[in-house]
Amino acid sequence: MLGNYILKRCLQLIPLLIAISIVIFVIIQLPPGDYLTTYIIQQEASGLEVNQSNIVLLTKQYGLDKPVYMQYFYWIRNIITKGDFGRSFQWSVPVSQLLSERLPATIGISLLSLIVTWGIAIPIGIYSATHQYSVFDYVFQFIGFIGLAVPGFLLAIISVYFLFTLTGVSLTGLHSAAFLNAPWSWAKVVDMLPRLGLVVFIIGLSQTAGMIRQMRAMLLDELQKQYVITARAKGLKEKKLLWKYPIRMAVNPMISTIGWTLPGLISGEMIVSIILSMPTMGPIVRRAMITQDMYLAGSFLLIVSCLTVIGTLISDILLAIVDPRIRFGGVAE
């Protein structure tokens, strides 16, 4: 049953992935000037002689003499078969090299934020819903509002500013200057932890705020449901009842949003790491955007979108595992 379901969902994703790649290819092509001219201009600007044979090679490799739709196929074929995402003009290296250097950190930080967000938001949401209108409910709601209203980049500046004025340490970058080029050691990890914590905290806060509100609303909704009264009428203890029925019901829709929170987290990660100059994708993608280094920008977008799609798939499968109605193909209420 579950196998069929997973297979069906995977097949549904293929057209979506194709559509995403087309949209991103269009975005890459949007700025004026094509790959080759940009390449030549850039080579000339940096004072290098333009190698004619190199141009021929590039033309062949990316199908640049072919019509646009053929260029798309060349582009996709290079990505799938060779992992070749094109060249970054600004860095004069293959995009894949930049990606392999920086993407793992971006994804790692985003996933860490996701875990932290869940770990904080769910318990607080449960507390707020079960203690509706209590003092702490109001406190959490207030913090939630602030988290929603203060954009990540502001929070990053403000917290770094306060840490800087209070301690005199500038917590930008993932490592302090002393450890920047040092080999990995415990001291380096310890040195990294507060910096990592700060990034995760900042990215997580705005996500947490939204998620607390969501969890609270869902649980409040579930607490009104008939099955809660049934369970209470059985003589079940409030606490046990709460964890067994409404909380499980309220967490389910949250699971289905894992996939959709990923883009938000990665967006947040980008902005925050730009300000904190983290060695992640954020700073270089921003520069790529400003200088219209579109292969780099587009590749990042492509990978992140694909990750989101996969994230959605995973959250759908998780949901099918925990919710028998989906697993057995029954319709939701």
């Binding site: 449901k225 008939q226 099955y227 009264i229 049934t230 369970a231 209470r232 009428a233 059985k234 003589g235 079940l236 203890k237 409030e238 067994k244 029925y245 499980r248 019901m249 389910n252 925990v322 919710d323 028998p324 109605r325 209420e333």
Partner: peptide
């Protein structure tokens, strides 16, 4: 209302059936 006395009465001495059996059971169990 949440003490052990009332809980032993609920379901043990007094039971209840509800209007909508669709909603009265938890769908996840």
């Amino acid at each position: 209302p949440t003490g052990p006395e009332i809980r032993s009465i609920r379901g043990g001495n007094i039971s209840m059936i509800f209007q909508e059996p669709m909603k009265a059971f938890s769908p996840l169990h």
